[in-house]
């Protein structure tokens, strides 16, 4: 009975929404735990955006955090010159999506490792730019005491209401992803992921699908970045460097790429890890590194992909041949 109810995506989404709103309410007595829950919800949103690109389109964008950072710095800059957060947020998120589309252009020519390397280079350039343009970003020192969003009436959004806003964003993010994946657009993306040349011959506009995926995925990054910034109150180039991209990627890969709930579970399990390791924060990088290796070696399909779908026998082993290097 419960099995059958849980089999439909609507009820899964309802259950997730229930948990997303209930957890901050239950934790509202302890601000620290509620804060961890809020950060986790932002990561759910980010992991869903990364999942659209990595899980469904088959591209691994290591500049994801950089795109979130562009939105974040833009929102901070605009609010500091007097804009309302509610005006600056959509502008920042939209700017991030447009930048994401432009930075996604290499995906039209490059696949697999070459695209990932390219995105790593782009991420490095973005991080260098955050450090280099000191008058806009305050360089390595970072920006602190970022004001909270104000509500009509002059109060500021903080504490439990802010957590609930983040919960709503995470639920909307997952809902939109479900709708996208179940639509024709989602099926075309999967066709592109599996074989983009074949997809092209079937009349699918590969360019359009890929760029749309970048627009939507970067919108997730941008909205997440915009709401993350006042919530945490401090940003620096390190808040959006390649390690953050890798962490979000790890949530998707660990949970199960190309499934709706895998990355959500990955984010819920991994986003709190840095807080649990607070007293041993030095070993955080080592733990993440070990997890990355563990996922690649032991769980290539992720938790959900490995358990829910019966593992298929290994695909026929294709020996490496000439021309491999050129791909």
């Amino acid at each position: 009975m419960i099995d059958r109810i849980l089999a439909s995506r609507q009820s899964q989404l309802a259950l997730f929404a229930l948990l997303a709103f209930a957890v901050p309410l239950l934790l509202s007595g302890n601000r620290y735990f509620a804060f961890i829950a809020g950060i986790t919800l932002v990561h759910v949103l980010w992991a869903s955006g990364m999942n659209l690109l990595y899980g469904y389109t088959g591209l691994m964008p290591l500049m994801f955090a950089g795109i979130a950072g562009i939105s974040s710095y833009l929102v901070v800059g605009l609010t500091s010159i007097g804009w309302s957060f509610w005006l600056a947020m959509p502008v920042g998120a939209l700017a991030a999506s447009l930048v994401g589309v432009v930075l996604g252009l290499p995906a039209l020519r490059l696949k697999g490792f070459y695209f990932t390397l390219c995105s790593l280079v782009i991420q490095t350039v973005i991080t260098l730019a955050f450090v280099y343009f000191v008058n806009l970003t305050n360089g390595d020192t970072g920006i602190s005491q970022i004001p909270l969003p104000t509500l009509p009436g002059g109060a500021s959004l903080h504490g439990l209401p802010y957590d609930l806003v983040l919960a709503a964003l995470a639920v909307i993010g997952v809902f939109v992803l479900i709708r996208l994946v179940d639509s024709g657009f989602g099926r075309r993306l999967i066709a592109v992921r599996e074989d983009d040349e074949l997809a092209e011959t079937l009349g699918i506009g590969v360019t359009r699908q890929k760029l749309t995926a970048f627009f939507v995925g970067s919108l997730y990054a941008g909205i997440g970045g915009a709401f993350y910034t006042p919530y945490v109150g401090f940003i620096s180039p390190r808040s959006f460097d390649v390690l953050i991209s890798l962490n979000v990627w790890l949530m998707v890969a660990f949970g199960g790429r190309g499934t709706i709930w895998g990355p959500v579970i990955g984010a819920v399990l991994l986003a709190p890890v840095p807080f649990l390791l607070q007293d041993y924060y030095m070993i955080k990088d080592v733990v993440y590194g070990l997890l990355i290796i563990g996922v690649i070696v032991l769980l290539p399909a992720g938790i959900v992909g490995g358990l829910v779908r019966r593992p298929k026998p290994d695909p026929e082993i294709v020996p490496a041949t000439v021309g491999e290097g050129a791909r």
Binding site: M60, T116, L243, L246, D285, V286, G289, L290, I293
Partner: peptide, 11 residues
């Protein structure tokens, strides 16, 4: 590539 990025992070 991802594997060696993991090694990078550990080291």
């Amino acid at each position: 590539f991802v594997l060696t990025l993991g090694i990078t992070q550990i080291l």
